[in-house]
Simulated scan of single mutants.
Amino acid sequence: MADDKRGRDKQAQDAERRQQEREVATELERGDEREPPFVAEELADFEAELEELTFPATGTELVTAIGDREIESVEGSYSIEELVPETDEETFDSPAAVGVQVQRPTVAAAMKRVVEASTTLRNTDFSWSQRRAYEKTFQELKAIDADDDDEGIQAISDWIVERIGDNERLPTSRAVRREAAKFCRANGYQVRNDEWLGI
């Protein structure tokens, strides 16, 4: 491969794709889900429907094809259009990637809002690593206030969307973590310095 800008860009994209695949595989193997699991039969039926689609598929294609499809979790029912960003910028390489997305409905819904808001920005690359950092922040908020109504996730996703609208750029993952830590401390949740939110 030539050592020019195009070659370096391709190498970076390939590395990012391989990282995404590794993280999807890791998520599928994890048994310590922080959100209520979906009913096994529901998830199996859903995955069977996904097999009929052509991958890679964009969020827009998925929402168009199966957006009104609802899946049951222990907490309630969610439609795919509530969990998958309706944008051509979001691409899912496999049914497994979609499965990972929908298994954490609260985090998925928050990320959907953020991803869709980010599409209004010009010349902004919402990298995989930054998305993962946002998701990890939402997951930590879910773990901290698991008994509440996910107020922390809602507050931080609102904050990110407001920053995108006001500043016309994505807040850094560090700024998101800092805001999440402020929310936690203001609401009586302890955040240690050695934790993800401990900034």
Rank of each mutant, 00 (worst) to 15 (best):
R8W: 14
R8E: 12
D9K: 10
D9Q: 13
A12K: 11
A12F: 12
Q13F: 03
Q13P: 01
E16D: 08
R17S: 08
R18D: 15
Q20L: 15
R22S: 12
R22I: 08
E23W: 02
A25N: 07
T26A: 13
L28S: 06
E29I: 09
D32I: 00
E33G: 14
E35L: 08
P36E: 11
P36G: 05
A40T: 01
E41M: 02
L43D: 04
L43E: 06
D45Y: 01
F46M: 02
F46N: 01
F46L: 05
E49V: 02
E49Y: 04
E51V: 03
P56W: 12
P56K: 09
G59W: 14
L62N: 13
A65H: 08
A65L: 09
A65C: 07
G67Q: 14
D68A: 07
E70W: 00
I71P: 00
I71S: 02
E72P: 00
E72K: 02
E72H: 07
V74I: 04
G76R: 00
G76F: 03
G76W: 02
S77W: 01
S77I: 06
Y78A: 03
Y78I: 02
Y78V: 04
S79I: 09
I80S: 03
I80A: 02
E81V: 04
E82I: 00
E82A: 12
E82S: 00
L83C: 00
V84G: 01
V84H: 05
P85N: 01
P85C: 05
P85T: 04
T87I: 04
E89W: 02
E89M: 07
E89F: 04
E90N: 11
E90F: 10
E90D: 14
T91A: 06
F92P: 01
S94V: 10
P95H: 14
A96R: 15
A96V: 10
A96Y: 12
A97M: 11
A97P: 03
V98I: 11
V102N: 08
Q103F: 03
Q103I: 00
Q103G: 05
R104N: 13
R104C: 01
R104Y: 12
R104P: 01
R104K: 10
P105V: 12
T106V: 15
T106N: 10
T106A: 12
T106E: 13
T106G: 12
T106L: 14
V107L: 02
V107T: 01
A109T: 01
A109Q: 07
A109E: 11
M111F: 09
K112C: 05
K112S: 08
K112R: 15
R113Q: 01
R113L: 04
V114N: 00
V114T: 05
V115N: 02
V115G: 03
V115S: 00
V115R: 07
E116P: 06
A117M: 06
S118P: 06
S118E: 13
S118R: 11
S118W: 11
T119H: 09
T119M: 11
T120C: 07
L121F: 14
L121H: 13
L121P: 08
R122Y: 13
R122C: 10
R122K: 15
T124H: 15
T124I: 14
S127K: 15
R131N: 11
